[in-house]
């Protein structure tokens, strides 16, 4: 049963990937330019394109292979994205769980308002404000970039990269905490009202036990499905952050590609973003099947 579920998920992931490839192919074909197999029919061009993509030949951007370029930039993006996503999930879930459990308090209402305010403001405004306050006025962080000039002499050091990445990470984290928080709080509110929580309390279990054993495990379920969506949201939000902080990642690359009308590169970026989101979705599905027993026996009967 478990294997069947797995195979299904793999099949859907691959399907989504091919649909994405098809769409990028169709959209970018509308732009007049030259690409491999232009002299053949549309169908043939599509297959040539897919064949090339699977071969790792994603086209060239100013003479440089697109895939190699993207890999290199992706690495820099992940330096910001991974800590930002982990931190925002951790903080968002903890704060959301806490106030979902202690709902209705004055503190709960004020935190909710602060979170809504934070989310309502676009990430680039936060980025500019943070640079203004923490870098310009307080001089705690650099204004942008990914390493100090001194690195030219002494070489790149981890601490220098950390120093440069701190503010972008903080900005992205601040921006993405509210989404997680809001969903977790809501999920808690729904779970606390469930009948099985009453059953648990009627057994005489302590509040702490009810919270950890009965409420949290159920309240976390929707979070797992939400995480890949949040990742997708962050990858998009990251474009602004990277532009403002001059961080040499995928976001900045996207901006440059658009500015230079470099369509092979754009096509490659769209594909890699889609791939990342598909992988995130797939891992969420796997993880979900681990924590929700209703999925395990899965197959057709659930």
């Amino acid at each position: 049963m478990r294997a069947e579920y797995l195979i299904k998920r793999v099949f859907y992931s691959v399907l989504v990937f091919f649909i994405t490839v098809g769409i990028t192919f169709a959209v970018l074909r509308q732009i007049p330019r030259s690409y491999p197999g232009l002299d053949k029919s549309v169908i043939a061009q599509y297959f040539v394109y897919i064949y090339n993509v699977l071969q790792g030949d994603w086209g060239y951007s100013q003479g440089v292979p697109v895939l190699g370029l993207i890999w290199e930039k992706l690495y820099w993006s992940l330096i910001i994205l991974v800590p930002a996503i982990s931190l925002s999930l951790l903080i968002g879930i903890l704060v959301g769980a806490h106030f979902g459990w202690k709902r209705g308090s004055k503190m709960d209402a004020s935190v909710l308002n602060v979170m809504m305010f934070t989310r309502a403001i676009p990430p680039y405004w936060w980025a500019i404000m943070f640079i203004l306050i923490f870098s310009f006025h307080l001089d705690l962080f650099p204004l942008g970039g990914y390493m100090s000039i001194s690195a030219l002499d002494r070489g790149i050091s981890y601490s220098d990269i950390l120093y440069h990445s701190a503010l972008p990470i903080i900005t992205l984290t601040v921006y993405s905490i509210p989404g997680t928080y809001y969903l977790m709080r809501n999920s808690m509110l729904l779970t606390v009202g469930e009948d099985y929580i009453l059953t648990a309390r009627a057994k005489g279990l302590s509040e702490k036990y009810v919270l950890f054993k009965h409420v949290l495990k159920n309240a976390m379920l929707p979070m797992v499905t939400m995480i890949p969506l949040e990742c997708a949201y962050l990858i998009a939000g990251n474009i602004f952050i990277e532009i403002i902080f001059s961080w040499p990642g995928i976001g900045l690359l996207t901006f440059d590609a658009i500015a230079a009308k470099d369509f092979s590169l754009l096509q490659g970026i769209v594909l890699i973003d889609a791939l990342l989101i598909i992988i995130a979705n797939f891992s969420a599905d796997l993880f979900y099947s681990h924590i929700d027993p209703r999925i395990k026996v899965g197959g057709g009967n659930v």
Partner: peptide
């Protein structure tokens, strides 16, 4: 149907 915890 709702009084038992689905994940335990």
């Amino acid at each position: 149907t709702t009084a038992l915890n689905p994940v335990l």
